[in-house]
Design a protein around this nucleic acid. Structure first.
Lengths: 370, 370
DNA sequence: AGACTTACTTTTACCATGCAAGAAAAGGTG
DNA sequence: CACCTTTTCTTGCATGGTAAAAGTAAGTCT
């Protein structure tokens, strides 16, 4: 862990910009940051000396060729870790969020329903040491409620309450560690390397075992959702549809909460896929696709954004359905009067992708973007 | 129109803070703006010399008594104007948004469906002159699409397209004029003197002749909504409900667009109230109240805010219905698990209130908050 | 070669800021 | 009544970021 001199806030921001938007020139950066060329030159000089950016001449038609500034992704490294109930999935990332190595280790067994905290800290430490020799930061994500980028307020999969994991990992590992909810981490990853490149307000919808949301407003990632997204997951779709756990008829959760749907079919929720459910009951699938369409429109409408990110292993299958497209068409109204163009991306995420999301949060912490 | 020396951006921001949050001390302002006492003292000195704030000693137990800083509302004046198809409603406001005088003048008659622009400019000029002798700014609002705080891109009530009204009024009157959509102006008014005092993200829903929305995200007021709020006004409520103009069954617009509902009952939309419609068809009223409940929950969920402002002459009647409350209850889920507390205010707005909203936009322009 | 164009750098002056010391305005105390 | 304490506000001075202007570098065009 070679020590790097700390970067000024402005230098950090510029590094982030270069990572997010790719190589740029001084003039373009001035435009983006509202700075004079003079100030920019000074900052860039320092960054180049620190080895965090490189310059390269561009062949231009006339005049002095301008220098293309490129961030050096290899100048720093972070480890991203996704915790589930039984496994720690880890990846080593460079500054650009590219995965270099990945490794997963099992977590210690539960004792009285609680995964021992000390054991988890040790596994994380081992993961970090085995993934890289010079690691500048660690990002950890898990399903549940996280407070202050450090404390697991409620971690149902680990059986934890009010555990300050970030602090313990930082102390034992000697490397700054930040904690995050997993969907929030995904939103942060998208803010820098996905949807955020073009939109600074967007919604994230994850469809998997449960139904998850994240919201990015004006470049600010919400750490907590109102009642964990309750307001969205119970919006109405079709009043003649099946009832959800709360007794709403045909609300979004009644269609898209995989565990709830599986339970209705008398199946164990854990390993059921949407495809299996679709063959079991095609009419449910139609309803679910409609629900997804309305959900997209609802988030886009309430948040007033044209950018929605869909994530989760099964979401591709669902979104590919023509029913979703039809629902959206209908909801958007006649094409002639329409001025909006929804941009919807689907991310079929595996555990490694979730870990990468955590890594990106680590990068952002490193570059002072949190 | 006595000339005032221009205030520094910081002084403007502090004035705005004092207007929004009421009198404060230097120390509290330092806290709010992240400034040192020294810098604050310097700025305040300038502001006091300019007569925009006053100081008053507070009786304290021990030590030098601290000075309570208060913005002087009377130090500047603006005129707010709401334009309809046939009338210009004007108010003279002080900096705190308090209405001092009000006056309305008829607009010139239409020629070939278009209200003559020159005539409107003249009426506005007369309104401004008659409302106050020393006016420092003018804010104008109207229903329709406004671009760049100056251009009426689409003004259906005046029959206008691409008219740069702001520029023309500024030039002819010698006082800076800003233009704004009426619901956006209302949102701006709320941001400074209403909901924004406690929340910097909130939604505004206006229920009147049509259905209107405004969104404030992280203190930023959206100038344009996606398809003018289409995504929200056509969210589903009850699939067995009446069809809206687009053929959706039981969507929000089918219940809450007064013109559309009146047309379904074979009535002229213009002067029908919700109360009349409710007596005509109580079942519609139940549907409308349900729709309003869902609409509130949808905006709150998509935008992830607990603060919603309801506005419009009829909205009080509707929101007072127990059906709305029940719908929200149901949507929010069992009270035990709930962590959110929606704060909903209703504003029964008349034309003068709309004009006041426009005036507040003028104040904000004056204080560099746009 | 010299003029011109474009991109970057240095110089210089400026202004807001923060720190630290000091002044001011009270009450309390001998 | 003089003096101390407490708290708040103000002033002197150094700093650091910023923009404008002048200067330098690296190329093309005639």
């Amino acid at each position: 862990m070679d020590d790097h001199p700390p970067l000024s806030p402005r230098a950090q921001a510029i590094t982030g910009h270069l990572l997010m938007h790719g190589p740029s020139t001084r003039a373009a950066l001035c435009e983006a940051f509202g700075l004079s060329e003079a100030s920019m030159s000074r900052v860039v000089r320092i960054m180049a000396d620190a080895g965090i950016v490189t310059e390269e001449s561009e062949r231009t038609s006339i005049g002095r060729p301008r220098q293309i500034l490129t961030a050096v992704p290899e100048s720093r490294h972070v480890v991203g870790i996704k915790l589930t109930g039984d496994t720690a999935y880890g990846v080593l990332c460079d500054l650009a969020g590219e995965v270099i190595t990945s490794l997963s280790l099992p977590l210690p067994a539960r004792a009285e329903g609680i995964v021992p905290v000390e054991g988890v800290v040790r596994v994380i430490g081992r993961l970090v040491r085995r993934l890289g020799k010079s690691v500048d930061g660690v990002g950890i994500s898990l399903g549940g409620v996280v407070d202050g980028r450090s404390v697991v307020r409620d971690g149902p999969f680990l059986g934890w309450r009010d555990v300050d994991l970030g602090e313990r990992v930082s102390r034992s590992g000697g490397v700054p560690a930040v904690l995050s909810n997993d969907v929030v981490a995904l939103a942060r990853e998208q803010l820098w390397f996905g949807a955020g490149r073009t939109h600074d307000t967007f919604g994230v919808i994850t469809v998997g075992a449960g139904l998850g949301f994240a919201v990015v407003r004006e470049g600010i990632v919400l750490e907590h959702l109102i009642d964990n997204g309750h307001l969205l997951s119970h919006s109405p779709v079709d009043s003649t549809g099946p009832a959800c756990r709360l007794g709403h008829h045909g609300c979004v959760a009644g269609y898209l909460d995989r565990d709830a749907v599986a339970a209705r079919f008398g199946l164990p929720g854990a390993d059921v896929t949407f495809e299996q459910l679709a063959t079991l009951d095609p009419s449910w699938f139609t309803g679910a696709a409609t629900a997804l369409g309305h959900l997209i429109a609802t988030v886009a409408g309430g948040l007033q954004t044209e950018r929605i990110v869909l994530a989760g292993e099964d979401v591709g299958t669902l979104y590919a359905s023509p029913v979703t497209a039809t629902t959206l068409e209908l909801r958007l109204g006649p094409a002639g009067n329409r001025q909006c163009e929804l941009t919807i991306s689907t991310e079929p995420l595996g555990f490694e992708d979730w870990a990468r999301g955590a890594g990106v949060v680590g990068i952002q912490a490193l570059l002072g973007a949190l």
